[in-house]
Nucleic acid binder design. Structure first.
Lengths: 214, 214, 214, 214
DNA sequence: ACGCACGGGACGACCCGTTCAT
DNA sequence: ATGAACGGGTCGTCCCGTGCGT
């Protein structure tokens, strides 16, 4: 029994360390020795928990996908319908991306050309957005002449684009890009008869480094 | 003089082959032997033209940046102003991305975590969009309450997002995503008094592979 | 603990094999695959024990320096003082050079132009000879007008010269060069009043190859 | 005809540059590109004059051997016989070693383990010393009980030892080591009845760098 | 004759992901 | 859960021809 908790702890440390290295160096350049050293365990221990590098990355992606799902499947807002939900969730997602290494690593692994078949959070996110916008369309929340599929593609592209840009060096994104994006898009997206979703308040100015609870 | 042309040819072949391998496997996984083999030359020839893998990638990025610049600096449209130019150029850019491997590789290298300091076309593109939207704002082409910087960020994010998504496996983007994106965004972006820019016609159905002039 | 002994054994085998290859081909020409093959292990095992070729050479030098130190720091002879000690130790050193590959390799590495900063046994040996001759001078064992520093330089030069010559192909040194050298030098070096140190007996004729206990 | 003189000049520059690089880095580490760059010509030019790296080294050795021969075959001193000649020539040799890169490189190449079959000046020098000491022995210039072969070995060993030591980093040899060596050895070497050879005056203190006419 | 841009293979060191034996 | 070992593979680069200019 005591062993189990210890094992779970090293497993967690491994996932966390792997996410950090993956996010920093990409999948191909991340070395297993570097990960195990950062987690404070030996390479043998790593291989005990995860049979291969791919399995480790897969686990990081799975955890990240779980986080996104938890974010998306929260209670629907009382008013505002699907579109309001979409606005709120994207807002939270960007905030979580900045705070959670594993989430960030999960998304980046999905776009890493070194990984041939990543099924990270990106795919799930894309399908969720598509489903939500189809739903909104069915509920008459979308403006005339707006294709839900096209709009979903645009939203997904912008989301992963924001994620990419924020992870690139040389790019500094302001903290409220999401709000600005919605302010731009909502007039053309939402049916005017229903009223526009309200934008969440932009995050307060950061002073100092935010805690990264992982 | 005769030698020069042969050298230039192999140099071009090298860049082209490198772009293909980089775009397929990412920077880290791309092997120099694979590139030189695909170009039909020896590794020694590769090393003669490019002293290192990094220099090769840098050259690919430089050529790609040049392509983007040529695309962006074409003659301004007679009517429609900056916003129309932006719409047209994004349209051409996405088309070029589908047709030109070097361009695609240049963009992907910029987002590759294996490359520590890529200065590919992404950076230049971002600054160009920002400058153009500032200009549009100064000319009164933007709607009230639209921040040119925020809008530029959104446009850039969406562009690289489209690029990323189209390069990911598992994602199938329809050919007219850009048009749909602009249809969504323009109502909120353009000043109503000036009239909306016209969207380019969606590309005809492709039959067979497009020419890839490299 | 049990593993340690096996690891120590391969480590020893690696050092031994490296010394052989270094002594034969010099540092630059010695290839790591050749060394690991001769040691009967894989290149990965080599890299596990020694992170780089330089570290391996450094270890060989360190072991060789240890051997020289053990040779020099034996008990002083009952009679004869420092000069007698010097004669005895040089004698043993040349014998050890013929018998111990690691020692030989250590000395040769010190003179190898491929190694930029070797701190092999040569340096320590030089300083020991200088110190010993200073001591002999203070004890009045040296003849008038003999500079201990100059004499030390000559002795060191002759020693490494013998080492070099014996390792060069095309040169065949007789086994008792050291005795002949001392017979030549001692009359001018030692104070006549103290009596000359006795020369060790020349080694018996070798029949066959000597064991090389490593 | 004009071409010839230019060719000879580049040939000289090549030999000189090769000697410098060989002396600094050893044979194996010396790269042909480095040599040709230092000589100010292209690698093709190098290959035109010397078909291979080995041929280049061989030429350096040949030139160096020629220098030693010119040094040794000067006019015999009026008085003093063979021993005096030996003393004088060693003195000049050490001076020349410090001044002439090609000479130094030639000697070092002879001891370089990377070169399998160097026939540099070392071999010729050894034989010359042996011959001279045999001659001195026949002329009764040597002390009783001194084996000319053993003495020659000692002298050669000391000479190359001095050469080695002076080329090692970390060793600082005083300028008059040779004089001190002879002061040490001559009492035991020369027949007392004939009078000791006179030592050459030690070189004056160097102020600034000596010219290296190469 | 002399020199050079260009290209060809080959090999070296380093290191990585993985598995056995303990 | 660990230390040790394995074999494959990558980048760099080195030494060397080959055909074009001068």
């Amino acid at each position: 029994m005591v062993k189990q908790v210890r094992a779970a702890r090293t497993r967690q440390a491994l996932i966390r360390a792997a996410a950090e290295v993956f996010a920093d160096d990409g999948y191909a350049l991340a070395s297993l020795p570097a990960i195990s050293k950062r987690a404070g365990v030996s390479t043998g221990a790593l291989h005990f928990h995860f049979p291969s590098k791919d399995a480790l990355a897969r686990e990081v992606e799975a955890v990240a996908t779980g986080s996104v799902q938890r974010l998306a499947q929260r209670e629907r807002p009382a008013a505002g319908g699907s579109l309001q939900l979409l606005v709120d969730v994207t807002h939270d997602l960007l905030a979580a991306l900045a705070a959670d290494v594993v989430l960030r690593a999960g998304f980046e692994l999905g776009g890493d050309p070194s990984r041939k078949d990543g099924s990270g959070p990106g795919l799930w996110w894309s399908e969720w957005v598509h489903a939500l916008l189809r739903e909104a369309h069915a509920a008459g929340e979308l403006a005339q002449d707006v294709s839900p599929e096209g709009a979903a593609s645009a939203v997904v592209a912008a989301t992963v684009g924001f994620g990419m840009l924020s992870s690139w060096r040389r790019f500094r994104l302001s903290a409220d890009v999401v709000e600005q994006f919605w302010a731009l898009v909502l007039p053309g997206l939402a049916a005017p008869s229903r009223g526009l979703p309200v934008l969440p308040a932009p995050p307060p100015e950061r002073t100092g480094l935010p805690a990264d609870p992982g």
